[in-house]
Design a protein around this nucleic acid. Sequence first.
RNA 1: GCCUUGGUGGUGAAAUGGUAGACACGAGGGACUUAAAAUCCCUUGGACCGAAAGGUCCGUGCGGGUUCGAUUCCCGCCCGGGGCACCA
Length: 906
Amino acid sequence: MEYDFKSIEKKWQAYWASQKTFKAVVDESKPKFYVLDMFPYPSGAGLHVGHPLGYIASDIFSRYKRLKGFNVLHPMGYDAFGLPAEQYAIQTGQHPEITTTNNINRYRQQLDRIGFSFDWDREVRTCDPKYYKWTQWAFLKMFDSWYDPAKDKARPISELIEKFTTTGYDGVTPEKWASASDKEKSDILMRYRIAYQGETAVNWCPQLGTVLANDEVKEGLSVRGGYPVEQKKMTQWQLRVSAYAERLLKGLDTIDWTDSLKEMQRNWIGKSEGTEMVFNTICGDRQMPITIFTTRADTVFGVTFMVLAPESDLVEKLTTPEQKAKVDEYLQYVKKKTERERIAETRTVTGVFSGSYAINPLTGEKVPIWISEYVLAGYGTGAIMAVPAHDSRDYVFAKTFGLPIVPIIEGCDVSEESFDAKEGKMCNSGFLNGLDVKEAIEAAKDYVEAHGLGRRKTNYRLRDAIFSRQRYWGEPFPIYYKDGIPTPIPMDKLPLELPEISEFKPTEAGEPPLARAKDWTFEGYPLEKSTMPGFAGSSAYYLRYMDPDNDNALVSERADKYWRDVDLYIGGTEHATGHLIYSRFWNKFLYDLGYVCEAEPFKKLINQGMIQGRSNFVYRIVNTNTFVSAGLKDQYQTTEIHVDINLVRNDKLDLDGFKAWRPEFNDAEFILENGEYICGWAVEKMSKSMFNVVNPDDICDTYGADTLRLYEMFLGPLEQSKPWDTKGIDGVNRFLKRFWRLFDNLSEEKAKPEELKVLHKLIGKEQEDIENFSFNTTISAFMIAVNDLMALGCSKREILEPMVVLLSPFAPHIAEELWHMLGHGGSVADASFPEFIPALAAEDNVIYPVQFNGKMRFTVELPKSASPAEVEAFVRGYQQTAKYVGDLKIVKVIVVPGKIVNVVIK
RNA sequence: GCCUUGGUGGUGAAAUGGUAGACACGAGGGACUUAAAAUCCCUUGGACCGAAAGGUCCGUGCGGGUUCGAUUCCCGCCCGGGGCACCA
């Protein structure tokens, strides 16, 4: 019978849907396993062949774990709020909800064709009010909490108020608290809330009309859209992620992620341990101490000037009247520059002298205070002590403005560049002289602390997350302004639904789109007009999957206690410093308040590589309509033109198809090589404009979903990025057909040892490989097994039936059909993974030389005491037992006494 | 610049420190077929020796090292992918 994948796949997809085969139910009697994919943003372009890569891998793992007896939770949903739908709405007036729903439907159709084992009853959409009720809930919880440094966790804000009223806290005395107005109280509490409103320098994108978080900006451009971003001081909602910096860092040691991803997060968190030091200043007759942060307290004897960030509050206070004009000019200049220009001009050094001087607290020396944009307002204290001899940035600055450079490490040459390395012996440094740099750092810290000049301090680069967006298509903030005081709407009024508006762009007055909503008020007071950013909805979606229909809690205690955390999370690295930080933060916050039972949400994380496109080119001879084959193009002057890859097979161009493709090519002529037109190719991003997009639907049409699944895995290691090239797909398709054909004359005979060996080798290999996420080698092993069985002429149920189960995670449709043909009811997903019997797979290679290509090598462990003579005797004896195979001859024996013997025989 | 990955045939790739290139694609040859498709078989890293069977040498980015033995481990370079980038 023919392998008719079309009807098979349709049939079993319908079966899984109607039988709810993959519905997950809490069952404390079974071990759980939670496999999660990063849910997609449903874009208008639909899925291309690269998107399902991770989903296929996670699906294989889910199905495998299920065969292993686990109760598997494998959900899917949509990250449905976001900019593209809104931008589209602004252009067309189409409501983002309609676009989003259409896109979701399209995604669902495409996903369904691939045969995933998702429990669709648990689907979530971040734009669904029933879902974002819990996003708003979490926000209100954060609003209603503060970070208690003593307990090192988030606590209800009521505990802080209690402190204020009774003992006082952090400079707020009971008297001060009692006499404060409501507005003042609100302002004080704002300084502590986990979700708070505060003025800060933000990334403002004028084209998008919204602020963006740090991870949404790359090289001064918005990640979405690529528009310039500028720095601007604004009052925004923020999340106090920085309070969790240390825990986010420490938590990395407890989870199984790749080193590179953990490293990325560590860099993003950017812990640095140093010293805060106070420098007194002379500014006319005023005293104005500057606090600076340094990791190199040892270099304090090398300080020759100070630098303030242009945005620093100290600038105004330390500028002398004589310098004021120049400083103001400089500040204007800095302000005008966009973030992008600042980055582009990284090498140009700018700055201005403030007119004031600082006193080095260790030497008493007087050094000038400068202002320069190379010092960042947002990090440390916005002021530095400059040590040009040992810091390359200070060095360039000093050279540019002719400031002195004083080396303080013995023997270093600072005539051309600074000496930044933390090594060598100190000199010119008073009591630090003669110490090694590392010792000197500690000694200087001790000295500074002992003399009250400063203290040890740990700084983090991780900033609080800007949480408001001046957009429409996001979660509304459940906050209204009662007499100007931000007030949460009551929990039982959630969700606060997004209002209908007629137009989606900002108002003429520059207010967010929500200002257009009629009656956007709560109890007569105005509601917050900005909405939450994209990461809000994706920060706790993995928790919601555990209990998606619960109206009373984000997740019930029972569901949380059972599913706990994600055992395997598969997704791209692009979320390393965004979603994966925010989610961990969000989870830790909920953990602090006792809503979830695990401190880390994602136990194991795998990053699937990107699938790139493989573009094809034709070469048109300049000023003609003649196209020359790639091998001959160097003989002519040609222009390279992208050609639709659907017109190309194995790099050979379909000439008629090409002529019909575009009117301008109707009368194209070709210069062929060996009768064929060979196209050039290149690896590029998969995109419509390069005509290299491959749609999984097309692959499903011509080869079937099982072939698609196998091929995506067969392409190479999961973590690696690789170009999609359809040309190898015939191989896996042939493999499926061959496997199918083995069942043509199924026999009930008992299997022979060599047949059992094939099976058990495969079981062992598959088990090992899947646990290591090495799916490509599993498929290879499967191909070898099928080839071996064909060579042995084996079509025995005893062998084939377990093989169907083994194949089912990879190619579930064909497996279901064969399982059914073998007389089983139900789904192969309910079978058990075959038991591995090592003895049956053992490599007694002398008896079955078939897989060794006529040559063999074996390695035997010998007792340490074995002498060369004994080794030789052993080898001869071994050769005796090899008599079945015919004439074997020892070719090479490598003996290391007491270790290993290597014998090559043929 | 710093961090992190990777570099193996025409291509995708495989190799607990132990026959480098499994498996697959492509290519070449052959079988079946009126023909095509499908299917099956053989060859396929390079150079050389041989009529053949078969054999020899060289080969995993480059240079060293450890080891009986290195694609694998160590040190130093070169090149590509990803991330961070005035973070004091």
